[in-house]
Amino acid sequence: MPASLVEIPFDERRIQIEYQWLRPERTQRPLVVFLHEGLGSVSMWRDFPRHFCEAGDYRGLVFSRYGYGRSTPRPHAEKWRPDFMHRQAREALPALFDALDIGPGRKHGVPWLMGHSDGGSIALIYAASFPQALDGITVLAPHIVVEDLSVRNIAATRQVYLDTDLRERLGRHHDDVESAFWGWNDIWLDPDFRQWDLRPLLSGLKCPGLAVQGEDDEYGTMAQIEGIHRYAPQTTLLKLARCGHSPHRDQPEALTQAAVRHINTHTSYLK
C-alpha cells in the first residue's frame, strides 16, 4: 500500500505523520510497528519491513516521526530537547496509535515494536511506560546511555554532511533534509544530552524483548544491550558478527530468523 498521512496532536499543535500499512489483510496475524533510526523515515527502511512481514506472515506499520520523511518538518528554529525520545514514546506514539486504532481492545490490536537506534530507545521507553499496551519488542542497536563512541562518530557525520553528497542522498527520503539532519545532529552533540540515561526505566520492562547489536557498530558498544539485559533479564541478546549499526541492512537473514522466532515464541496463539 502507498504511504498516507494522518493528523495527530503533538506539542500543543496538529502535525501530520507519514505512515504505510503492510499486509493489512492479514487481520489475524501479529502487527509489527517499525520505529526508524535518527535519520530514518518510511522510505529509509527500504524493503526490510515488507520482507520481514512476509517471512513471519505478519502485518506491519511503518511511519516517519515528526520532522522526518514526509511527516510535518521541524521548524528550523525549533531545537530538540534532551527528553525528545521520551516525548516521542509517551506523547507522539500513543497519539498515532489512537489515530490508527491500535492498542488493547482496538481494531488493529496490541502491537509488537521493532525499533532501530533512536527508534529502539523510543521502543524501550514506550514498553516501560505502557507495559500493557504491547506484546513485545525487538530493538536494533538501541541507545540506553550516551557513549563517547556515539558522540565522536555523530560529530564525524556532521562533517560528512557538510563536505559530501550526503545531503543530496538524504534529501531523497525527507521533505526537509536540513530539518531532519540538524534536529538529530544538534541534540546528540548538545553537552546537556550527555546526561541522558534510560537505565532508571529499564526495570519497568515486563514484556518479552530481543536486543540486537552488531560487533562492528560504529555508534554503540555491547554495553548498550548488555545494560538492557542487566535490568530486564527476560531480554534475549543477539550479537552479530560482520555487522555495524544497521543489523537489518548488514545481517537481514540472521536478524529475521531470530526476530521471527522471538515473536512466534511469545505470541500465545501461534504456539
Rank of each mutant, 00 (worst) to 15 (best):
K107M: 08
H108M: 06
G109E: 07
G109R: 03
V110D: 04
P111W: 06
W112E: 05
L113E: 13
M114P: 01
M114H: 04
M114I: 06
S117A: 14
G119V: 02
G119S: 03
G119E: 01
S121P: 05
I122A: 00
A123V: 07
L124N: 01
I125R: 05
S129C: 08
S129L: 07
S129V: 11
Q132S: 15
L134D: 03
D135A: 15
V139H: 06
A141L: 07
A141E: 03
P142F: 12
I144V: 12
V145G: 08
V145K: 15
E147Q: 15
D148E: 15
R152D: 11
R152V: 01
A155E: 10
R158A: 13
V160I: 14
Y161N: 11
Y161I: 06
Y161V: 08
L162R: 13
D163L: 04
T164I: 05
T164A: 07
D165R: 13
D165M: 12
L166E: 02
E168Q: 14
E168S: 11
E168M: 07
R169A: 04
R169Q: 12
L170N: 10
G171V: 02
G171H: 03
H173T: 04
D175H: 08
D176W: 02
D176C: 06
D176K: 02
D176Y: 04
V177R: 06
E178W: 06
E178P: 07
E178F: 06
S179K: 06
A180V: 00
F181D: 08
F181A: 12
F181R: 05
G183V: 09
D186P: 00
I187M: 12
W188T: 08
D190Y: 06
D190E: 14
D190M: 05
D192V: 10
F193K: 02
R194D: 11
R194W: 07
D197L: 07
L198V: 11
R199S: 10
P200E: 04
P200N: 03
L201I: 01
L201M: 15
L201A: 10
L202W: 03
S203T: 14
S203V: 10
S203C: 09
G204I: 00
G204H: 08
K206D: 14
L210W: 02
A211I: 02
A211Q: 01
V212A: 01
V212H: 01
V212G: 01
G214F: 01
G214V: 03
E215N: 12
Y219T: 09
Y219C: 05
G220Y: 00
G220A: 07
A223D: 15
A223V: 03
Q224P: 00
G227M: 07
I228E: 00
I228W: 00
R230V: 11
P233V: 03
